[in-house]
């Protein structure tokens, strides 16, 4: 049967919450799809979309080099597969990474999204926060933003479209097949970003079937 195949990079972080949000989204959209945990390279070729969940970006990056996962996923994303990076996922996808306190970090990353991110931009855990936010998708959408030791996007390249800002901080962007947020939609009930992402994956799936 023809179905779309979404992978969650399952190295470290809140993988389970992303699986649940994706499944809920399939149900709501009446979409026939499967969600797979990706922690080795056997499934990559079948994927129609990848979600990189929240977690510790240094840990996810380091352990994603086992099985050359990072490189293989990088190639697949370069060939047009949609990817959705959340918090640590945003950091992993970015071209330039700084840390609020430490400055430039030499951590491993995918070097795909033409932005500069600052890790821990809003401070440590005590400054993790909730706030109402607006995201520009097909139309302007109001939702709740959960920011946990979140990064912020401090510079963007010409190809990058801003999807959301909070008090002048860029918190969500899109660059062709890549979307990334500094907040955690998987920790809320609102799956609007998942719907947006799944529709990108559906288009990609349809195009690659021809």
């Amino acid at each position: 049967m023809d179905h779309i195949n979404i992978g969650i990079l399952s190295i470290q972080g809140d993988v389970e919450e992303n699986i649940l949000a994706t499944r809920y989204c399939f149900k709501k959209l009446s979409c026939v799809g499967v969600v797979n945990e990706i922690n080795n390279d056997t499934q990559i070729s079948k994927l129609d979309g990848l979600i990189i969940p929240g977690g510790e970006s240094t840990t996810i990056a380091k352990l994603s080099t086992v099985y050359q996962l990072l490189k293989k996923l990088q190639n697949k994303i370069n060939c047009g597969m949609p990817v959705f990076g959340i918090c640590a996922g945003l950091i992993l996808l970015s071209k330039h990474i700084n840390d609020k306190k430490i400055g430039q970090t030499n951590q491993i990353h995918m070097d795909l999204l033409d932005v500069e991110v600052e890790r821990n931009h809003f401070g440590r855990q005590q400054n993790s926060f909730e706030s109402d936010i607006e995201i520009m998708l097909h139309k302007m959408i109001k939702t709740k933003g959960i920011f946990i030791r979140s990064p912020s996007i401090t510079k963007i390249g010409t190809n990058v479209q801003i999807l959301s800002k909070l008090y002048d901080n860029i918190i969500a962007v899109r660059q062709n097949n890549i979307i990334a947020t500094s907040f955690h939609p998987e920790l809320t009930r609102d799956i609007v970003l998942y719907e947006y992402f799944i529709s990108m994956a559906q288009k990609y799936h349809a195009n690659t079937q021809i």
Binding site: Q12, G13, G55, T59, S128, I148
Partner: peptide
């Protein structure tokens, strides 16, 4: 309530505290 950068936000909710621990999973 805290002022972060330019605006008011809410800190220390149960979602934020437990959510922090969720980000450590499998680590």
């Amino acid at each position: 309530k805290r002022k972060i950068n330019l605006g008011d936000v809410v800190c220390g909710t149960t979602t934020l505290k437990r959510g922090f621990a969720h980000m450590l999973k499998n680590g």
